[in-house]
């Protein structure tokens, strides 16, 4: 068995408990997030992995209170940042949190930056909302941030519009904007998906170095297992609005317990599988409004047994923080 995982700091920064986010259609309810629980410690990097449509982005938006309501509904759950439950906060209370304690980096930097304001304006605005500092001080800090994220000649770039920058530089600006008020947590929603592979690595390294410099936590939302394997301390695998497996990076990558995680890993191309046919999970992600009964993964699962179509699977503890939502595999492996 693995060594027990020790988080960099003992205190829990963010705790999400049994979060359920539903979207009301005209004659059905789409259960996009259906009972998700996880935690992020101070200084830690946590990855939320899953295919598109599994509810990971909605989870991220729910943390910041950005789920559009209506049609969205937070059906139940708690989101704790240190000691405050974010779900009970008013809009004003949330505004104090957003950008200040938790900030977000979005997937597509071109559309996520406002095209009619200069990048300087947009970064300085982020400082201005939360801190009362002079115009000059804001400017100085803005230049400092741009230097930190590795943008050359930041004074000149301040007056540039987003369309004048390259994709990687735009994402650096987004990161600078997220860092503006020294947040305790950055949520990065597929921060590298829209970028070239070489630029991807640069951005990931940038985030890592910033994180080392300040005891900041990062929650990555991604479908890219390559990203996960390079950055994650701990991993949560999501499927159809549920966490199906959680553990440290090594636990999940070396000893995956859930058939879905195993499928995901098996479908990664690697040198050892050269010349062999690449595995792919049959079927497709269920529509969140019409999820199958029992285990949501059972129609696609190669290990499914009759009970899977009936019983909702519970979490099975493999010790040292490694949990998997697949009782049949658990009991089979216990017997062996």
């Amino acid at each position: 068995m693995e060594e027990a995982y020790a988080p960099p700091h003992k205190d829990t920064l963010l705790l999400v408990e049994d979060l359920r986010v539903h979207f009301r259609g005209h004659d059905h309810v789409a259960r996009a997030v259906d009972g998700v629980s996880f935690d992020v410690h101070t200084g830690e990097t946590v990855c939320l992995v899953g295919e598109s449509g599994c509810g990971k982005t909605v989870t991220a938006l729910a943390i910041l209170g950005l789920v559009p309501i209506p049609p969205g509904v937070i059906a139940s759950g708690k989101i704790r940042l240190r000691d405050t439950n974010l779900l009970t906060l008013t809009e004003e209370g949330l505004q104090d949190i957003r950008g200040n304690q938790i900030s977000m980096v979005f997937q597509e930097p071109l559309t996520a930056l406002n095209p009619v304001f200069t990048i300087g304006d947009q970064i300085m605005e982020a400082i201005q909302v939360h801190e009362k500092v002079s115009e000059n001080e804001r400017r100085r800090r803005c230049i400092g941030l741009l230097t930190d994220v590795g943008i050359p000649s930041p004074e000149a770039r301040l007056k540039d519009y987003p369309h004048q920058l390259s994709g990687g530089q735009r994402q650096r600006v987004m990161v600078a904007m997220a860092l503006a008020c020294h947040p305790a947590l950055i949520i990065a929603d597929e921060p590298t998906t829209a970028l070239d592979v070489t630029v991807q690595a640069q951005i990931l390294n940038l985030m890592k170095s910033i994180q080392h410099a300040s005891a900041m936590s990062v929650l990555y939302i991604t479908h890219d297992l390559g990203v996960v394997s390079t950055v994650a301390d701990r991993v949560y695998v999501m499927y159809a609005g549920l966490i199906v497996e959680q553990g440290t990076r090594d636990q999940v990558f070396q000893h995956p317990r859930h058939p879905y995680t195993r499928g995901l890993l098996a479908s990664l191309p690697s040198r050892s599988k050269r010349g062999k046919r690449l595995y792919s999970i049959p079927g497709s992600v269920p529509n969140p409004a019409f999820k199958p009964k029992g285990c949501p993964f059972h129609p696609r699962c190669s290990a499914a047994i009759a009970e899977c179509a009936v019983d909702f699977p519970g979490m099975c503890d493999y010790g040292h923080g490694h949990l998997s939502r697949c009782p049949p595999v658990y009991s089979r492996e216990r017997q062996e």
């Binding site: 269920p286 199958p292 059972h298 190669s302 499914a304 179509a309």
Partner: peptide, 10 residues
């Protein structure tokens, strides 16, 4: 065990 139901209900 082979997959019980091939297609998820769409």
């Amino acid at each position: 065990n082979g997959p019980l139901i091939l297609e998820a209900p769409l």
